[in-house]
Design a binder for these strands. Structure first.
Length: 133
RNA sequence: UCAGCAGGCCGGUCUGUCGCUUAUUGUGAAAACAAUAGGAGGAAAGUCCGGACAACAAAGAGCGCCACACUUCCUAACGGGAAGAUAUCCGCGAGGGUAUUGUAGUGUAACAGAAAACAACCGUCCUGCGUGCAGGAUAAGGGUGAAAAGGUGGGGUAAGAGCCCACCGGUGCUGCAGGCGACUGUGGCAGCCGUACGCCAUGUGGGUUGCAAGACCAUGUAUAUCCCGGUUUCCUUAGGGUACAGGACUGCUCGUCCUGAUGGCAACAGCCGGGAAGGGUAGGUCGCUAAAGGCUUUGGGUGACCAAGGUCUCAGAUAAAUGACAGGCGCCAAACUUGUUUGGUACAGAAUCCGGCUUACAGGCUUGCUGCUUUU
RNA sequence: GGCCCUAUAGUUCAAGGGAUAGAACGGAAGUUUCCUAAACUUCAGAUUCAGGUUCGAGUCCUGGUGGGGCUA
């Protein structure tokens, strides 16, 4: 890593419309309360090991302030803990992840952090399975 | 002091760690890295009005549709704002809400009630006789209703009535005074006068769509569809007028223009050019933020606002940054140990940009004014 | 982001500003039957919310809330 492992530049974010459509059509799901994950492993010789996006449905929170707050907290939790995920992703592959918030209450940072740890713990064996095939 | 009315303003702050984004500078071939500076609001919201800007459309006339409607002013513009006018309702009051074009025409007013506007059910009075009915006169009195035919007093009459008179209220015309004006005050004349809501009429304004507008670059499939023109082959008289249909202006009508088929009549294939429709792409750059800009001083105006001078540059993201965590301070509430603990700290997040309106909002500051009751 | 539409019983729809907001299906109770179905009788159940206009709003006007659509 050229930069500090806690940075979160644009190339680690999922922002191409094509890739998002691919992720939601072909990706697999995983629950880790209060978020739901959607993930897909694709071939990518260059670039960052993972790309992710965070989503809070408008149906749960009508006000944009609350949606922004949750999305920012989730992003911080991902940014500070992504190193433990990156070590498990093999060379030449790229992981696309979408985090979708499910609760209808605004939860604090620590519960988001716990959810993130739990999600990574669940995700690593799944990645091994896929790569083994 | 307390309660209240009208207006204006603010709406947390500091430190540390790790991040995001824009600009500039430096290093570097580039990717990138480093430093410095900036990085949500009074409503950024609802998308309700008005503009700027952009694309498309546009010979014109009439009608329709939508919005607005007292006066003077402000403004780029407005359905917004300021200062007023009149009427009415609420409040003790400071004040607040609503309405306002119309001497034309026309409609409706459930139930109840005699009657909802060319009004006789009861009543009152007159006449007739068969003495309780018929014919008339009459809006003074009467239960109903949201609303009942100007009000009070006098004259008058068979009984009554703007039938007549005086005063008052209102309407129309008009003289004088004040005001830029709506209008106000006051005098004269006239006709004697209901209320509410519509339709309708009059005047003014409105082309449509919206930055996902639009411009450029990149990526990229197929000439498989349709039309027109030219040319080659084959077939075939050619050109014009009239009516019909469709389309555009346009929501409708007229009108204008264009096209089509019919008017005796076309067909097939290849190539070239143009157009339509369809398919594909979903990346980037511009638009994009220096503006009807902010702050401030002076002057003008009752005010909205305007003029002149000075000074400043103040978000530009694009699956979308402006943050997360920890601690301190401030503010509010409760508890008691009276200076500690515990809890809370609003509404809410730019998406092309401005001017308004509306709605949400913990708490606080400030200017002017009011007070029936209450305290000093 | 921009531009629009809409809201009536549990569901699908009605209702010229004027009695208690109507109909169908569904629900509940009863009659009939040995029991069920069918049939018949009865009942319950609604104008998205807050203001305003009006004597009187489901309807007219204003604002909020919810639901839905279109747009490269």
């Amino acid at each position: 890593m050229k930069k500090s492992s806690y940075s979160f530049p644009k190339e680690e974010r999922l922002c191409l419309k094509k890739q998002i459509a691919q992720l939601f059509e072909q990706g697999e799901s995983l629950m880790s309360y209060p978020v739901r994950l959607k993930y897909l492993l694709v071939d990518a010789p260059e670039g960052s090991p993972a790309k992710c996006l965070f989503s809070v449905p408008k149906k749960l929170f009508k006000r944009a302030v609350k949606r922004n707050l949750i999305r920012r907290r989730l992003r911080e939790a991902y940014r500070l803990h992504k190193a433990e995920l990156y070590s498990n992703i093999p060379e030449g592959k790229q992981l696309l992840i979408a985090f979708i918030y499910l609760d209808n209450k605004v939860l604090d940072y620590t519960s988001g952090e716990n959810a993130m740890r739990k999600a990574f713990a669940k995700l690593t064996p799944q990645i091994r399975n896929i790569t083994a095939k």
